[in-house]
Design a binder for these strands. Structure first.
Lengths: 365, 365
DNA sequence: CTGAAAGCGCTTACAG
DNA sequence: CTGAAAGCGCTTACAG
């Protein structure tokens, strides 16, 4: 590729100084109409494009924001990223997307494919992004490593950082807490109101905040309702369809008695329904299913999936607002909560009968 | 945020020149053991991080690649992006992701949320990325605008550009053509082998190459088989679940007779199956469904979706290889084709009866 | 209105 | 082994 045309070349071509070219390009300062026209023509003719690197070196801003997320192929994150990007673009910022695959066991098999979050933090520092958004990842691991905590603290001391996840004391970020489990309580109450008494819980990686929060809310709700809350009703795994499938298989193999189940999100619900079906069970006739976090295709499933809308769109807007606020120094250490909402569709109905207790046959795949 | 520590500060602190600090940090040139240690300690103590902007200005490379895609929330793109990112990271590059929402009618409602591809091209030039990957978008519009073509040509003259999409003569990019419709022909033949004679086609935005290619292959296959290919068997729309749903409604409202249908991808198949169900039709008992482009959840749907695996994973690897090749000047104007593969699952079976011809009732939603 | 100069933070020949 | 200097491409006071 040929070297790109610089401000100096334009200046020489027009017999003016580079300062003058800069002035006309940026429409700053004063330039006589004649030279302005001459310079503008040269710029157009040569296709001059200013070097953003040089500009950033001076202005000390790159108009770039870093986004560090676990897995963009997860619909939850891709939907959120889309929202965030739109808001960022409107504010004139670019986004550098970094996938860590941290909680995504689907991708962790074999050699390390991505960089760690700590490595990404270092890169953000070097590249002088104007701010960083951390979405989940190690921040949501219940037992956080000291080195991660130190790295995040170091990053936050040097540039604005907004975190969607569990607030950590003494780390100078803006934390945005997604939810407190309210939606799950609503879901359990809804199931109970339909007459269900034995309600299972499927999916979610153990040791992750979102799992712990939702599981905790599930247990609290059951306790408040004086409903059974046996350990065997719970099967954690991860956040994808294959994990819901696996959780369903385990639940069924245990021979647990349940007439309804909470799935940690839509993907897990999908896999769970599949496992049930392979066992000869129908939703909602035999088992009612409700998702704790609805994505975008729930209304097209058969049956249409009842679930909690965590209002992630709202979250997306708030997040970028918080980040831009932090970048421009008008940040408040917000603790945002979106009100979850139950969306009733077709996957729940009053219980007809208990699930048979005998050991389950292995499904064919 | 306080100004970050520079090489000059480290130099002063150690009473050496900045050249020396640079040498120890980059482990280049020769430095005495004593000063090396002193400098390394200062670097660690102060948490010095080199300014990548300044480095890039000198080295003329940013180790950043731009990716311009229509919609990362579309599972096709997010899966591809994931693959591409992993390959890029391993090669030491960062990715700037730009969503244009170009073909995504789901997002085009109301005011313009994203930038146009041409604006993104300009930004790539300014930011001096080392290369650009263009995935779909206007490149796949059958009637391409002149200004887009000019902008792409200009970009490709100035930096390495790899395009996944329809090759355009005289535009100096590396083009990677995804497919030629071979998979669709396989799908139609499969349906015909099952005994289907009236096969519908649903989804895909009109005027887009991928739609045209697949529709063309569908028609060719039908013609070769001497099967009916009425206009009314075809209903285009777009690439998402809601579009499949809409296409299904239209097909049903037309009262067309069909026992099987091709959906342009899994999302469309999902919506289509939903529309059929709302009309009281079951898959595969009443209608067989096959997807022309399978995503990741097809094996968890009820019924498990039969479809074509376009082997996008392979594509992801090839793409980044081509881009890195172009960046390092070892590009060949590749024309890559992945061999599609039929994956038979549960959504197709021999026809039982024709769909009733009377006008369809509107489904409840 | 316009230009010369300093400087953003760094790397890299070139001397010593 | 080490430092002074030039230079990457640009912006911005400061003179004139």
């Amino acid at each position: 590729m040929g070297k790109s045309v610089t401000i100096r070349e334009i200046a020489e071509e027009c017999h003016v100084s580079i300062a003058t070219v800069s002035r006309v390009f940026n429409d700053s300062g004063t330039v006589s109409a004649a030279t302005r026209q001459r310079v503008e023509e040269a710029i157009a003719r040569r296709g001059y494009t200013p070097n953003a690197l040089a500009r950033s070196l001076i202005s000390d801003q790159t108009m770039t924001l870093g986004v560090i997320a676990p897995d963009i192929a997860n619909p939850y994150f891709s939907a959120l990223f889309t929202l965030i990007e739109q808001a960022a673009i409107q504010a004139g910022y670019f986004l550098v997307l970094c996938n860590t695959f941290y909680i995504s066991s689907s991708y962790q098999q074999g050699q390390r494919m991505a960089r760690t979050e700590e490595e990404y933090f270092e890169m953000m520092l070097r590249r002088k992004v104007d701010g960083v958004l951390v979405i989940g990842g190690q921040i949501d691991v219940v037992e956080m490593s000291q080195s991660y905590r130190a790295a995040l603290t170091n990053l936050a001391r040097r540039m604005p950082v907004v975190v969607i996840g569990r607030p950590i004391p003494d780390v100078p970020c803006v934390f945005i807490e997604k939810e407190s489990g309210g939606g799950v309580i609503t879901a359990v109450n809804y199931l109970a109101s339909l007459g269900h008494r034995r309600i299972a819980f499927a999916g979610g990686e153990p040791g992750i905040t979102i799992t712990a929060t939702r599981l905790g809310a599930y247990r609290d709700a059951l306790a408040a309702l004086r409903l059974p809350c046996d350990e065997e009703l719970v099967c954690l795994s991860d956040y994808y369809a294959k994990d819901g499938y696996q959780a369903g298989q385990v639940l069924l193999a245990r021979g647990v008695d349940f007439t309804a189940a909470l799935a940690i999100n839509d993907s897990v619900a999908l896999g769970l329904m599949r496992a049930l079906k392979d066992h000869g069970l129908s939703v909602p006739q035999d088992v009612s299913i409700i998702s704790c976090d609805q994505f975008y295709n729930s209304e097209y499933l058969i049956p249409r999936l009842t679930g909690i809308d965590q209002h992630n769109e709202l979250l997306g807007k708030l997040v970028i607002q918080a980040l831009l606020g932090a970048v421009h120094g008008t940040s408040e250490p917000a603790l945002i909560k979106c009100m979850p909402e139950l969306v009733v569709r077709e996957s729940c109905q009053p219980p007809r009968q208990a699930v048979p207790r005998e050991g389950a046959a292995m499904p064919n795949q």
